[in-house]
Design a protein around this nucleic acid. Structure first.
Lengths: 158, 158
DNA sequence: GCAATGGTGTTATGAGATAACATCACGTCT
DNA sequence: AGACGTGATGTTATCTCATAACACCATTGC
């Protein structure tokens, strides 16, 4: 996903310390909630965090076993489903990829700014309530979950 | 896609006259623009209009030949790409389906309200400019195209 | 005529995701 | 401890979605 262009990009993947910290925090939080942060789930979360950008499911599958041994698809898809359910990751439908959630808040609707040039993404707090909420209300829809994905160019790629 | 629930739904697919009218209008407009509204493109557009709801690509492929003869995938995908480029159809990424555009305006960012119960969708004018535009600006992104898909329950399914 | 461009037909394959079933780990009830 | 229910995993196979690559055809402009 990364570096399809030749530009310079400042924000690389986070360091190992950051990843370990986020993993530990998630582990503690979910365990406290009575959830089971199993090795497979933790591993997938780790891969997402380490990437620091959206990752394809089959890339996660390929990287899953550190030694080059891939996982079976259901292993990773199940972990992704769990992480998404718990607000630790998001699926970005328009590019069929997954990304670790960088917003601290649970129960938030996420919006993404996605660079079509280098694949960098920024997660922004969902600006849903405003216009879309009003449109939904006018149409009589009750909204449970919203996907907002804006494609364009990041600062470095313009 | 339709009728996964037992509810009553008022708005069925449009009548044949509506479909024919929309097809003719699109044909005239695109021809005037120097585009070629070929039989395959017109046929896919017709199928989308007649469905009146999002349709999976392989459903279009199956229905393409009226007699039950399916099309080859590229035939339909090419037509969809063209229709989308011309603003006559949209891809709904979160459910991997396609729908005829019901908004008259070209060059609009579309937003969808999608019923997870019966598959009905409403297209609403994109409320992008507000919060999301501001967030993008703050992050330094230049946005070219936005996907907004809100999932929930339509009035009939609540 | 004849090249250039864009559309179509066809074959094959790549990429994304899940169904179905067996097994295992853990908590809890008695 | 033993029996049970629940949720997680392992494994196989398959399904759905989408595109690459190449040959051929139609239209336009020189």
């Amino acid at each position: 996903m990364s570096e399809t262009c030749g530009h310079h990009h400042a924000d690389g993947p986070p360091g190992a310390a950051d990843v370990a910290l986020a993993m530990q925090a998630a582990d503690l939080r979910l365990t406290a909630e009575g959830e089971r942060m199993t090795p497979a789930r933790l591993r997938v979360f780790e891969l997402l965090l380490a990437a620091g950008e959206p990752v394809k499911a089959y890339d996660l599958i390929a990287r899953f076993g550190g030694d080059g041994q891939p996982a079976k698809p259901p292993t990773v898809y199940r972990a992704l489903e769990f992480l998404e359910r718990k607000g630790l990751a998001h699926r970005i439908a328009s590019i069929s990829a997954y990304v670790a959630c960088t917003s601290g808040s649970i129960d938030h609707a996420a919006a993404f700014l996605i660079c079509d040039c280098c694949g960098a993404t920024a997660e922004v707090s969902a600006p849903v309530a405003g216009d879309l909420g009003r449109a939904a209300e006018a149409a009589g829809y009750v909204i449970a979950r919203t996907t907002i994905e804006a494609h364009g160019r990041c600062p470095a790629c313009q």
